[in-house]
């Protein structure tokens, strides 16, 4: 397992795989989403990419794998295998600061950071207000905890009345 201390080639391949856009939220790259766990060069021309799903049932993982394989093939790596790892579990805290900024710009309220002092596996956190990505108001209300994809909740802004998606905390 190589993480952070990879060879120059591994770092380069990590950068390439990480630059693949998310198939459902194309404003984000896989690196910004925090789902790329590592790239291991096993032999010349033979690479394993470790990917973690946001949700266990997220169907986008198959498109992500195919996109990564294509990008690395184009870069001259003939044998690419993408493996799914579940542990440690992905969290919305893994989304980078740049990723959060892009989500808001795209009209999706970014997830709130988890309270580091709260117990793990505690109740769903709901305390802080979610800011409307359209007008910036913090006066927003929850319409449904489930929305167009597994990772989002549906909210409405009380000030500007626009509905919007919220990348819910996990």
């Amino acid at each position: 397992m190589v993480t952070g201390t990879g060879t120059l080639l591994e770092k380069e391949l990590h950068r390439l795989a990480g630059s693949v856009p998310d198939p459902e939220l194309p404003v984000l790259t896989l690196d910004e989403l925090g789902v790329l766990r590592g790239v291991d060069v096993l032999a010349p021309g033979k690479v394993t990419v470790r990917l973690t799903p946001t949700y266990t049932g997220c169907p986008a993982i198959e498109a992500m794998s195919a996109d990564i394989e294509r990008v690395l093939h184009d870069h001259g790596i003939p044998e690419v295998s993408v493996v799914t790892v579940l542990s440690p579990a992905w969290s919305t805290d893994d989304i980078s600061a740049e990723g959060r900024r892009k989500l808001a710009e795209f009209g999706i309220a970014p997830p709130r950071p988890h309270d580091a002092t709260a117990p793990a596996n505690g109740p769903v956190p709901l305390a802080l207000s979610v800011r409307c990505p359209h007008c910036g108001s913090t006066d927003t209300e929850l319409l449904s905890r489930f929305s167009s994809t597994a990772c989002k909740a549906l909210r409405r802004c009380v000030t500007c009345r626009e509905p919007f998606d919220h990348f819910k905390e996990l």
């Binding site: 266990t56 049932g57 549906l154």
Partner: peptide
């Protein structure tokens, strides 16, 4: 509609767990 989406989301999570 919101419930349709909610129940489908829960079903999808469970299907993901089932596959693993």
């Amino acid at each position: 509609l919101e419930e349709e989406v909610a129940l489908a989301n829960i079903a999808l999570d469970l299907l993901g767990q089932a596959r693993v």
